[in-house]
Amino acid sequence: MKSDHQTQASSDGPIVELRGVNKHYGALHVLNDINLQVTKGEVVVILGPSGSGKSTLCRAINRLETIDDGTITIDGKVLPEEGKALAMLRADVGMVFQSFNLFAHKTILENVTLGPIKVKGMKKAEADKVAMKLLERVGVANQAGKLPAQLSGGQQQRVAIARALAMRPKVMLFDEPTSALDPEMINEVLDTMVGLAKEGMTMLVVTHEMGFARKAADRVIFMADGQIVEQATPDEFFTNPKSARAKDFLGKLITNH
């Protein structure tokens, strides 16, 4: 099963592909015929006003949200509905949440090693080694023995990134990773993310941080009312938005900041 998994990891096809994805919350059409491809190594930033469906889209990709119709494939495999197959595919998709969601009863080190040990069957000693390297990389190795509540928000979010990376994911999803942070902690998380992007990690990032989009994105996707309204390179999008909705959105940002 596992080796089969790896041989199928083709590098030519898109890592994430959504085709005709729809989702409703009652009368609200939160995802309206979404078509999207993310290729290997690409950094895609999703922008849009709140309620536009961008978080739902991000969460649908590892099925934390179900969809009504359409297909989502991860590295050529259709996302299963549930069970072991879904769990296995999720292991290949790293997820970073707005509210960090570190396991509150486990130490920082245990947070990072839990997945490798329990999902991938890695030996504890090896998992510890890998985890310490990752914690070092995100700059919190000296906190390894502490509990999440003893760390600042920025540190917790960097641990969350390390926890996701420990699974060696094919793609990383970030669902507003800096929205719950104090302003002075936003940059330490964004810097970590920029570093990841530079190393060639495939990333899909829902954010309000325009600076990150300019600096690290290969492509910006603008969503409104559950639809993808516009796609462009960051340069093109910020200097010359085409749709009225995007112009309106960017205009409000400028007046607000």
Binding site: A87, S99, F103, M167
Partner: peptide, 20 residues
Amino acid sequence: GQAEAARAIGLSFLPAAQLV
């Protein structure tokens, strides 16, 4: 969010319940 994070790293229901 604890359950979501457990599922996101690939734990299925029983291990997520037992470990997290």
